[in-house]
Design a protein around this nucleic acid. Structure first.
Length: 204
DNA sequence: CTAGGGATCTTT
DNA sequence: AAGATCCCTAGC
């Protein structure tokens, strides 16, 4: 049996990221995000993602291949880290698609696995555990992820994705928070683990 | 240079 | 339902 603090996590292979964006968004569910800190590893299990389909997706930052300082990393190798600022929060993405094709996957929610004390400290003593990581902004704060990881790669320490076998039933639905995105609003490109308490709440 | 707005979260 | 409060982007 696994014991907390005793599991050695290894990053996934580069190959893991080299597949169509919808498939990768689905495959990311159940995998682990590992952030190695001086105080020990902080680990969370991904339970919710959203795919952004490069130049064809009105909701994507890279719609029509818009290429700027912010979106630049979306054109790089699959598996690159794309972080950006939203209001007062940092959000994190996994870059996908071949080099030059700006697809990305937003990691929206995860389930705390290891480094629970650190997460509680980041999010505040009073919050219930289920409110630590059940949204994209909350998740980055709980894990201690900031803009300094822009352009990092998800196979490298100290921030990487590690494989995990245990995956529940996956459901798909429309994405959240993109009401101005025309037709793209309806695409079922949000993936989440069924009945998992850490999936973000749907806001009308 | 300035103005506008957003893949959010918290509190009312 | 609205405010917080920051960065990116477009336009002049």
């Amino acid at each position: 049996m696994k014991k907390e603090g005793c599991v050695i996590h290894k990053p996934v292979e580069q190959q893991f990221f080299e597949k169509p964006v919808l498939e990768l968004a689905r495959n990311l569910i159940g995998q682990l995000i590992v952030h190695e800190l001086p105080t020990g590893p902080v680990v969370a299990r991904i339970v919710e993602t959203e795919a952004y389909h490069g130049e064809q997706d009105e909701a994507a930052h890279s719609f029509k291949n818009r290429r700027t300082k912010r979106t630049e990393v979306m054109f790089k190798e699959p598996g690159s880290v794309y972080t950006y600022q939203m209001h007062t929060h940092t959000l994190m993405n996994v870059v996908c698609g071949p080099v030059g094709t700006p697809h990305a996957i937003l990691i929206r929610a995860a389930e705390p696995v290891e480094g629970l004390e650190y997460m509680r400290e980041q999010r505040g003593e009073k919050l219930a555990m289920k409110d630590w990581t059940n949204g994209p902004g909350k998740l980055t704060k709980a894990l201690g992820i900031t803009m300094k990881y822009y352009g990092h790669h998800w196979t490298k320490q100290p921030l990487f994705i590690a494989p995990s076998e245990a995956v529940g039933e996956i459901e798909a639905g429309p994405r959240v928070g993109i009401s101005n995105a025309g037709e793209a609003v309806h695409y079922p490109w949000r993936f989440y683990e069924k009945d998992n308490a850490f999936v973000s709440k749907f806001r009308p």
